[in-house]
Design a protein around this nucleic acid. Structure first.
Lengths: 144, 144
DNA sequence: TTGTTAATGATAATGATTATCATTATAAGT
DNA sequence: ACTTATAATGATAATCATTATCATTAACAA
């Protein structure tokens, strides 16, 4: 998502483009990873635009609500966030032993298959599907 | 998983078959849903074999470690647990508005596709994959 | 039945997240 | 640019889920 794009998204929702919010989105743009609120907070501390931890939580939630970020859960007791990137999509491999999380980009044929699943699910359950997440759990190369 | 089966699993791991543990597994057998710790605790209160909340948490964790239960996360801030059923597998549709969770059983072709993904991922990342979870998010029939 | 040891219950402690509220910054309209 | 209405922020208290502690009790092997 380009610089302009997410600012537009905020404006469309009547959300002010504040410096904390810009700084938070920039953390994810510089650092394309799944970060927890505390990690974002720590990261900001090193830069010139700091933000209180409450502001970080509030904005992660807000940015998630408008789709600029999304929330992922790796079972470590805290939420993690990632910047939303379309159409390139990725999912996660979580190591059951050390907790390491590896991202994987879509495997060939995956998006087609997911579309088929979505169509089926919409028919059966009447859900309007907006997104999905796939998690694989197992042992990473180091732990197995 | 039959009555005998999970008792065997516990014994194999040198875990005592206590009445709290039996009661907890029974909650899931009677009530095939994704329950939170607090919900399990409440459910037990109504029966004759009660258990303290700490015991509930400890045993949910233990039963998950040995594979009798598994943990799912719907983004409501608490862990949920389900009884593990093989080979019939299911995943979840989560409503972004009301939080309702609908289970869906595997769609035709799904397990074959997941096997293919697992093989690819093992090759690429060296993960030994043990399980997976798929979540679809959107609006349920009532909320859309 | 007994002894060893894991399991339990009550509750304190912890850690993540949310709420409160006085102060400050944004941006729309002059 | 200057005001002004209002949303955003920061500090921190409150809340909620989960984990740790420790004295007591229950499982089960011998």
């Amino acid at each position: 998502m380009s610089n302009h794009e997410w600012e537009k998204v905020l404006k469309k929702h009547n959300i002010k483009v504040t410096s904390s919010r810009m700084a938070i989105v920039e953390v994810f743009e510089e650092n394309r990873k799944h970060l927890s609120a505390e990690e974002v907070h720590e990261y900001l501390k090193k830069g010139d635009q700091k933000a209180g931890i409450a502001t970080v939580y509030r904005n992660l939630d807000l940015l998630t609500k408008v789709g600029i970020l999304h929330r992922v859960n790796f079972g470590d007791g805290k939420d993690h966030f990632e910047i939303t990137q379309r159409p390139i999509h990725h999912h996660h491999l979580v190591c059951n032993k050390c907790g390491r999380v590896v991202d994987y980009s879509e495997i060939m044929g995956e998006s087609e298959f997911v579309s088929y699943l979505e169509k089926e699910l919409t028919q059966r359950y009447g859900f309007k599907i907006e997104s999905h997440q796939i998690y694989f759990y197992g042992l990473c190369d180091k732990c197995r």
